[in-house]
């Protein structure tokens, strides 16, 4: 069954304002909002892959190094992301521990795996249930920003707990890496063009 997409009919939709125009070499810019017109986002797969690989690489230091150091009465105690969650569980704050676990470990990991699978789906020409894959893509793009939770929490803690030797919270090297992972996975999701999923269906 051949399904009518705009591109198959020689039409191009503007990504910013929704303008639908005839595909034409001379028409490179949207006549209304002047943003570039493309049938599909150019180099979508390559860009997504580049962001994704960088995110994978930075995911390692983000989990190995301490994300913050808590000093109490002169004794410093570095926390990794997982260490912080274990500390929360040990002090009987299970709901918050679960929240941090989901936001800082599960979401980034599932995002990395999910985007990898989406790229495989498109590159390998899989034709599975495209609707489900689109829903997965939407969940990935929606949920990404919530991983910033840890970074914001640290920014509040360092400002509040700053009393010299009595107690002090310092941000660690993993904070930079983790922040970069969140931004890179958001960029990866943004540069992935979900219409590629549906293009697989139309290929003979």
């Amino acid at each position: 069954m051949k399904i009518n997409t705009a591109l198959a009919q020689g039409l191009v939709r503007c990504h910013s304002c929704g303008f639908l125009g005839k595909r034409d070499i001379r028409l490179t810019k949207c006549p209304l909002c002047a943003s570039p017109l493309h049938g599909r986002q150019p180099h979508s797969v390559q860009k997504t892959l580049a962001y994704l690989l960088s995110a994978y690489l930075l995911y390692i230091p983000a989990n190995i190094f301490p994300i913050m150091t808590v000093t109490k009465l002169g004794a410093g105690e570095p926390h990794t992301i997982i260490g912080g969650i274990i500390a929360l569980i040990n002090s009987d704050m299970l709901p918050i521990a679960l929240l941090v676990l989901v936001a800082s470990i599960l979401v980034p990991l599932l995002k990395l795996i999910g985007i990898s699978l989406l790229l495989l789906y498109v590159q390998r020409g899989w034709t599975g249930d495209a609707y489900r894959w689109t829903v997965m893509y939407r969940i990935i793009s929606f949920v990404g920003r919530w991983s910033m939770l840890d970074i914001f929490m640290i920014s509040i803690l360092v400002a509040l707990v700053d009393m010299g030797s009595i107690s002090e919270v310092l941000a660690g090297p993993a904070a930079t890496a983790f922040g970069a992972v969140v931004v890179l996975t958001m960029l990866a999701a943004k540069s992935f063009d979900p219409r590629l999923i549906w293009d697989n269906q139309n290929k003979p």
């Binding site: 997409t5 705009a6 039409l11 979900p194």
Partner: peptide
Amino acid sequence: MPAAHFSACPDCDLLL
């Protein structure tokens, strides 16, 4: 313009 009565889905490019 022939495109005037149509729009396209931003996520799957279906002509509507």
